[in-house]
Write a protein that binds this DNA or RNA. Structure first.
Length: 473
RNA sequence: GUCCCCAUCGUCUAGCCAGGUCCAGGACACCGGCCUUUCACGCCGGCGACACGGGUUCAAAUCCCGUUGGGGACGCCA
């Protein structure tokens, strides 16, 4: 159904049209992703458009934050960003055209009058709609007048939604909506359809909160003698309480996840799996997503965004990431811990031992710290629980001797030496390894002790062993 | 209120369109075990769902109707 089978079929062009009244949220990002994937999969294009006609709420800083969130996710666009506020003349022109061909009319009803009629309709059990008072009056422009669409009163407006299937609305349910405000600016519906047509959009992929907007937009487009694009309404994303995802649910802005230590590839993967699937596959690279994504595998029901799943994915991605990739993502997180000057070679050596233990970049930085600073902070609990125990000082001395003899870098030999030492001292491995671990890292948890020694190198190991004796009993 | 949409484990979902291979599969989470010098990783196992009621059919998670529940829309917001 979606494949482009003949040359007359226009090339796929999708659009992502956020209104710059806030940061890019999970839901918007998923919409952007689906539009982007669909366009990329079909070798088409995505255009970026900013629906900023609400000049009170739209801000340039939001434009920048939305685009930077998209950049973080790697969602680029082929055209734009276009600003609706820069296309006002065009919208006015279209309104004039509709006024001229009779598909729109001037309405002099005041907002208060209209609202009163709506309330009355609602009170008597009907749908709150404009009653068409000015529809046949043949009025002209006036102070405070708006322009309304002259919608069909009979029949149905139907469309075949690419994810939900056939949907139809009785035209009686649709009232004559305002297309131009009294200040001369266009309303949302008018601006959207003009843009979708002018920008040659072939597929409108958006949240299913727009389903009921669709018949009106189709009518508007037809009133201009044009054919509407195809529509695909994707299910909404809900919070854990099954309500529309919002700030109440904690981090909803995509960009916050960057600061929380998530890799963009994790986020992309998690977003893709919300409402879309490919059999039992859970992990997808960007390229796989492009290759496999299509609208027919998009589900119809709303999905709850589960942070635990994102965590699991992030863990997986960190674990399988190239050290190089991690090293380019890590500096900001290290800097937050005050670590700006460190030996990159040590970090690179440590990384493979650390990744299995962390599910985000914040944790990774935390785990990396003891290897990157000269005197890692000693956890008081670790000191009292391990270092200040009977035999800890002797173990430290014995290990120092081993290091001088074998060198901390020879993991295999050190392993053997530790076992022999434990046997000679008549203690369990843990009674040697734990004091050494605390001495070397300041903590009770770390990678394997031999790996830790190899990462640090003989010199640092000896220094730390010596230093730890001050803490030992 | 009216209209529209949706309904499989706690969560994301496969299966549904082309009914039997499904006493429903995977992933995350959770629980237990193994591994083990710590913390993890990993591995093995467990718990756990077709919203309800009718119908069609030899046979329904799959098709139809209804009920219930949820969501959305009904702006001179987008």
């Amino acid at each position: 159904m979606m494949s482009q089978t003949n040359d007359n079929t226009p090339k796929v062009r999708t659009r992502f049209p956020p209104s710059p009244t806030g940061a890019l949220h999970i839901g918007g990002a998923r919409t952007a992703l689906f539009n982007w994937l669909f366009a990329r999969h079909h070798g088409g294009q995505m255009v970026m458009r900013l629906e900023d006609t609400d000049q009170k709420r739209s801000k340039q800083e939001y434009v920048e934050s939305i685009i930077s969130a998209m950049t973080w996710l790697g969602l680029d666009f082929d055209e734009g960003p276009f600003y609706q506020t820069k296309r006002m003349d065009r919208y006015k022109e279209v309104v004039q055209q509709m006024l001229a061909n009779g598909t729109a009319y001037w309405c002099h009803c005041s907002p208060e009058e209209v609202q009163a009629k709506r309330d009355a309709a609602m009170a008597s059990g009907g749908k709150p709609m404009y009653d068409g008072t000015c529809r046949e009056k043949g009025l002209g422009p006036a102070d405070g007048a708006v322009v309304r669409f002259r919608g069909p009163c009979e029949g149905v407006t139907a469309f075949n939604d690419l994810v939900k299937g056939p949907i139809s609305f009785d035209n009686k349910e649709l009232d004559d909506l305002v297309i131009q405000r009294s200040d001369g600016t266009p309303t949302y519906h008018l601006a959207v359809i003009v843009d979708d047509i002018d920008m040659a959009i072939t597929h409108v992929i958006r949240g299913d909160d727009h389903v009921s907007n669709t018949p009106r937009q189709i009518q508007l487009i037809r009133a201009l003698g044009m054919e509407p694009p195809l529509y695909a309404h994707i299910p909404m994303i809900l919070g854990p309480d099954k309500k529309k995802l919002s700030k109440r649910h904690g981090a909803a802005a995509v960009i916050e996840y960057e600061d929380m230590g998530y890799m963009p590839e994790s986020m992309l993967n998690a977003l893709a799996r919300l409402g879309w699937s490919h059999g039992d596959q859970e992990v997808f690279s960007r390229d796989e997503l492009i290759e496999l994504f299509d609208l027919d595998a998009v589900g119809r029901s709303a999905a709850v965004f589960d942070i635990a799943k994102l965590n699991a994915l992030n863990h997986k991605y960190i674990q399988s990431a190239e050290p190089k990739r991690l090293m380019e993502l890590l500096p900001p997180f290290l800097a937050k811990r005050g670590i700006t000057d460190y030996d990159a070679a040590v970090l690179e050596k440590a990384l493979p031992e650390l990744v299995a233990r962390t599910e985000n970049l914040i944790m990774l930085a935390e785990w990396a710290e003891p290897y990157l600073v000269a005197d890692p902070e000693m956890d008081p609990k670790a000191v009292s629980k391990v270092l200040q125990k009977e035999g800890a000082a002797q173990a430290l001395d014995a290990v120092a001797a081993l290091v001088r003899e074998i060198g901390a870098e020879d993991t295999g030999a050190m392993d053997a030496a530790f076992h022999k030492l434990a046997e000679d001292m008549g203690v369990k491995m843990g009674q040697i390894a734990q004091p050494v671990r605390v001495a070397l890292t300041g903590r009770t948890a770390s990678p394997g002790i031999f790996e830790v020694m190899a990462i640090l190198g003989s010199e640092a190991v000896l220094n730390r062993l010596e230093r730890a004796k001050d803490f030992a009993a």
